[in-house]
Amino acid sequence: MTAKCSRETYETKSDEELVQLSIADVDAFYFLIKRYEPKILRYIRRMTGSKPDKAEDILQEIFLKVYRNLNSFDPTLKFSSWVYRIAHNEMINQYRKDKQTSGTVSLDDTDEIDLSAKLIYDEDIHKTYVYGETAEAVKKALQSLPVKYRDVLILRYFEDKDYNEISDILRKPPGTIATLLNRAKSKFKKIARQYQLDSPL
């Protein structure tokens, strides 16, 4: 039996170390949940647009799955990618179960400005967007995207994941991720025009 560590010791451990500790001691898992709770909750809300209660239920289900599958964690992956992968799969399951629920994409105002700024400075985006667009319009534009495109845009521009991380999360080759992202950007631009987000600078 592993001797229990103090709170400070747990907090300084790496994700991978906490995984090993959690397998032997469930209390160590608390610190992993704590570490990822805000990020995954935001990801869920951005992806599903669920109300807070529903998002928290999904989050709890995700962490239960993470805990059950701790022994399948491949240390060659980043732990965060693995957690996001489980979260992504769980949301797809929820989406299939609950197709009639059409939540809106949850974006804070800062999120909306972030996305616009990132898209503006993205070298692949030639057309630019004015800063004055409303959060509501961006929400609607994202909402109109098919899930696969919304997913890559959110992972790339909101969760700040690089291509390899997105590849690990979505279990697709990095080349496919690049293609998917390009298509997502052009789809987003097209839809954004409908919401008048594309006035040239």
């Binding site: 397998i23 469930v26 949940i33 928290e56 709890q60 059950r68 599958n69 022994n71």
Partner: peptide, 22 residues
């Protein structure tokens, strides 16, 4: 949520699936 999840794990006696299964 962290505490609730941990409580649920303990209450429902959830365990990690054994390594040999994977």
């Amino acid at each position: 949520i962290s505490k609730n999840t941990l409580d649920k794990i303990k209450k429902e006696n959830v365990h990690p699936i054994p390594r040999h299964y994977f």
